[in-house]
Amino acid sequence: MSALTYLLPWEFSPALLLSVLITGGLYTRAIFLKTNKERTAKFYWQVLSFYLGLVAIYIVSHTYVDYLSQYMFWVHRFQHLVLHHLGPLLLVLGGVQWVQQGAPSWFSSWSKVPAFIRVPCELCYRFIQHPVVAPVVFVGLIYLWLIPEIHFAAMLSKKLYWIMNWSMLIDGFLFWWLVLGPEWQGEQKGFKTRLLMMVVVVVPQQLLGAYLTLSRNVLYDVYDVCGRAWPISPLSDQIYGGVITWIPASMMSVLGLVLVLRRRLNYLKRKENELS
């Protein structure tokens, strides 16, 4: 197999390609518009984080990794780890909000959108970003797509597979945006809530991961039905997948926790300096 086979998309997705190109393009334009004063060491770390996140999302959904994800349970778990946890977190840490600065001015005039479109959109957004709803949806989606019957249908049907991966990516982004996005300013805007949200999402993910890893039965027969990318015992496939769901996924949530704590510390320091 040539190198091209590994790099070319298994199933070409114009939606994904356009999203990555537009986001990446606008961001790149925005960082060139930054003044020298704004280019601190933190800025370069953010740029690195952003591109890493974007490239990671592209690789797991638009190369040979996507093929493997359809025919190997553990690769599928890895794909979702990137789509739902790692990728969106890196984008948010990388200052994805700068995309707006790189966009043409008509792009960012949300208030000019007719009310009948804008209001329902805003209501939906407010609902899904509610501090109680967001963690439930975050964990709920992981559970939902792993219900054996639903998982079976999602792996068998191209349409459902597409919906599954997009729902993970969008939800991951919304969640990390809520927890670590730039809108977080100051104690009163919910430092404690964010901390609590991070704690709440860790435990159910660990339970699920442990269940998958320690289960003696093969829970997802769709990989036998559809065939695996290479010969491997179904139970080892499931154990690897379980471990990925168990350890790195919950570790990412702990990392989120640490990041929220660090933000609070920086905030308190800044406030102290202002006072003295």
Binding site: Y67, Q70, Y71, M155, L156, S157, K158, V225, C226, G227, R228, A229, W230, P231
Partner: peptide, 8 residues
């Protein structure tokens, strides 16, 4: 048909 095969 969303199935695959591979060789050892």
């Amino acid at each position: 048909y969303r199935v695959t095969f591979g060789y050892g």
